[in-house]
Simulated scan of single mutants.
Amino acid sequence: MKKYLLPILLFLLFQACSKPYQVENVERAFYYWKSDNWSFSEKEQKVIDTQKVSKLYVKFFEVEHNDLMGNIPVSKNNLSFYSNKKFSIVPCVYIRNEVFLESKKEELDLLADNIVFLINKKKKENLERVKAVDEIQMDCDWTINSKDNYFYFLKKIKEIYKKKVSCTLRLYPYKYPDKMGIPPVDKAMLMCYNLINPLDNKDKNSILDVNELGLYLNRQREYPLHLDIALPIYSWMQLFQNNEFTKVIYNDFDKIEPFLKPIKPLWFEVTKDITLSNVYLRIGDKIKYDKITAKQLDKAISTIKKNVILDKQVTVALFHLDDEQTKYFSHEEMATFYTLFNN
């Protein structure tokens, strides 16, 4: 009997120390990350309506570093929202990590000023028909070497904007806050995807591998910021020509599937010369297809619920709203990606 006593005591101790799952209300959201002139398509509008989406995280522009010109906010879309229902818009800014590796503090002061000015300008010009929201989100894959400058920049943004500032949070800094620091923002969006470098491990789904997710979310952790959750619903193809990676293609797998033959899990070989998305595919080219399924996401959500301590109110955002990506999921499947987070 004694040999069973220690495991039982450890189990009871774990149960006593574990914080009960407490999510009561889920705000439904999408990321909208297109990089051209756009407005909602009929199918995208239907998704918003059917899923009762109340918030969109929208990429307003990107920031790149140029040795001659400095840090340049680049707008890659022309916002044009037309919807029969009002929803909230959270302006998002994607900033390359090089910006913080290459910039001095005074350059970051100027960048923060420019970003807030441009966001307010775009909101005034393009968002008259949607709800105002007192939040902006910064998206950057910061590293240990860029952390100090990035956190300095976030403080400046908060100081200038005077409203809520959130940021994206990858799983590595989530798991290792002592090493990576806690970003000085009001809340963070935990990005539960893109866990694997596509070129480092060619045998795993680089967008979402549930086993890899479990390595980061391997026990309950109470992060010192409010956490929302982002999940992937997109898929992509990685093209290899002469065994060398060429580019990523996000859509059109259905169009070329008849001209592919499976060679091993995730991998296909092109059987006919064809043109796809202005890319010429030749016989013998290889394609790795990382596809996200409802079953994968259900398992991922189970792992998240078990190990990520969330508040009673949480926003769940799917990445991203696009005809070619949402068509692989039924409306019922997409609804479960939100409802599974409820008690």
Rank of each mutant, 00 (worst) to 15 (best):
K2G: 01
Y4S: 03
Y4T: 02
L6Y: 00
P7L: 01
F11L: 08
L12I: 10
L13Y: 11
L13N: 10
Q15F: 12
C17Y: 11
S18W: 03
P20I: 10
Q22H: 04
E24L: 05
R28V: 08
S35A: 11
W38M: 07
S39N: 10
S39T: 14
F40A: 01
S41M: 00
S41K: 08
E42S: 15
K43H: 06
K43P: 00
V47Q: 03
V47N: 02
V47R: 07
T50D: 14
Q51A: 06
K52H: 11
K52L: 09
S54D: 07
K59L: 15
K59C: 11
F61A: 00
V63W: 04
E64Q: 13
G70P: 03
V74S: 12
L79K: 02
L79P: 09
S80V: 04
S80A: 14
S80D: 15
F81P: 00
Y82A: 07
S83L: 14
F87V: 02
S88W: 03
S88F: 07
P91K: 01
C92Y: 08
V93A: 05
V93E: 07
V99M: 05
F100P: 02
F100A: 07
S103M: 11
K105P: 03
E107M: 11
D109N: 15
L110G: 07
A112P: 11
F117L: 10
E125M: 13
E125C: 04
L127Y: 15
E128S: 14
E128T: 13
V130N: 12
V133H: 14
V133C: 12
I136V: 10
M138I: 15
M138Q: 12
D139W: 05
D139S: 02
W142I: 01
W142Q: 01
N145S: 15
N145W: 08
Y150M: 10
F151C: 02
F151E: 02
F151T: 01
K155I: 04
K156Q: 15
I157V: 10
I160P: 11
Y161K: 05
K163I: 03
R170C: 05
L171Q: 00
Y172C: 03
D178Y: 08
M180A: 13
P183L: 04
P184F: 04
P184E: 09
K187P: 00
L195T: 15
I196Y: 12
I196E: 10
D200V: 09
N201T: 11
N201K: 12
D203R: 09
K204V: 12
N205Q: 04
S206F: 05
G214V: 03
Y216F: 15
N218F: 08
Q220F: 04
Q220Y: 06
L225S: 02
M237F: 03
Q241I: 04
N243S: 12
F245V: 03
T246I: 13
F253D: 02
K255P: 06
K255W: 09
P258M: 05
K261I: 15
P262I: 05
K264S: 10
F268N: 07
E269Q: 15
V270R: 09
D273L: 06
L276A: 01
V279M: 01
V279A: 06
Y280K: 10
I283A: 05
G284H: 08
D285W: 11
K288C: 01
D290L: 01
K299M: 09
I304D: 13
K305G: 06
N307G: 12
D311R: 08
A317I: 10
L318W: 09
D323A: 11
Y338M: 06
L340Q: 14
F341Y: 08
